[in-house]
Nucleic acid binder design. Structure first.
Lengths: 209, 209
DNA sequence: AATAAGGCTGAACGGTCGTTCAGTTTATCA
DNA sequence: TGATAAACTGAACGACCGTTCAGCCTTATT
């Protein structure tokens, strides 16, 4: 699931210690990255934040970009780990979708700074590593795709086969928009109202009338 | 309309020359920024790109961020200048909206690199300057708001008064998504198909049935 | 032709930052 | 307890980059 452990080399032998230290690194870095951006955050700051020397930090990563990968991966899996177990595909497809949307949108609200960060700093990753982030986002999309497909098979939704993927993307982006357009949306709508309205218009659109 | 000319100071007296030189600066910077990002692009590169010395460049701007403002402003006004004159509010509200969506989405497709750049580098601006970018985006949103309002007044659309703004934002984001989710969308859909599908589902949603 | 000012030049400055490595501390085990 | 390796330290290195400034060139004016 998580790419970080396999891909990033370390000069330390103890696998368990690597795990522990990297969690510390990520915890320190996430805050700083989100607040100041990747480029403006220095290795020294990250090391200092949890009382480790710069030298030691470099025993657990190779480059600064490695930290960015760890952080992006952490954010992505946090979102996915919190959405996935809460989503269930029941017989009532409309209700399933409604629930999934609500869960996802509430997590976005909670982690909005992280979502915005992902949008803005993915481009700082190398081409190779960016693909992992996209892949992770495709995994999230598939959650909604599956619900939609199930609803179509079951006869609750009416969506052209070819448009199921697009609809899933729409659902996700309309959620993420709550974060990256907050300067406009959050002074005009409450989260509850936002979820209700978007949810309704998505369901209206795909429900047979 | 454009903030750049008034806000950014210059040590050069000749107003016309400032205009000319800044256009050269923006032209050189846009390409580099879009390709390499703001932080990775150096002043030296920008100056070299159109054969000006670093010293002279600094006669026309105060800091590197000034160039970012100029570039963001340039991108925004390019989009707006190309959308606004093509949009017209006719008696047939549905057709007006359909046209506006198509025009806007096609421009996004054409300028997708620029759109993505705006999403990613706005945060590098100071708080003060970021507000101008948001304001500019609100201006764009108002174009769609006006069409929607007109359609509601005219009886063609059925949208709760409070949701007109949200619908306008939805229309814009579903367009911008074509750019920043191209890694998923552009390998599954053509632009024509994308415009048609999104356009249809937006119109379905707000048209009285 | 002399003067002056507007515009231009790029070497130099000061500072920052990612990364390394010679050496120290800590933990392990014979 | 001494030896060995793993883990840690932070000063130092080298490179880069935004910005400045002392002086040069060009043009216009008298």
């Amino acid at each position: 699931m998580s790419i970080s452990k396999k891909e990033i080399e370390s000069s330390v032998k103890d696998k368990e210690l690597i795990e522990i230290r990297r969690k510390e690194i990520v915890n320190a870095a996430v805050d700083l990255f989100v607040r100041k951006g990747f480029h403006r955050t220095t290795i020294r700051e990250i090391a200092q934040k949890f009382g480790m020397s710069v030298g030691t930090l470099y025993e657990y990563i190779r480059t600064k970009e490695d930290i960015l990968i760890l952080v992006c991966d952490y954010i992505n899996s946090t979102v996915r780990m919190r959405v996935k177990p809460s989503v269930e595909i029941t017989k009532d497809s409309a209700q399933s979708l409604k629930n999934a949307i609500e869960i996802y949108y509430r997590i976005i609200d909670e982690l909005q700074d992280y979502i915005i960060f992902l949008y803005q700093e993915t481009k700082s990753l190398s081409h190779e590593n960016r693909k992992y982030i996209f892949k992770s986002e495709e995994d999230m999309t598939r959650i909604f795709e599956d619900i939609l497909k199930h609803g179509v098979e079951q006869g609750s939704f009416k969506i052209d086969e070819k448009n199921i993927l697009l609809t899933a993307h729409n659902i996700m982006v309309l959620g993420q928009m709550w974060a990256f357009r907050r300067w406009a949306l959050q002074k005009n709508y409450t989260l509850d109202r936002y979820i209700e309205t978007q949810s309704k218009s998505i369901l209206d659109q795909i429900t047979k009338h």
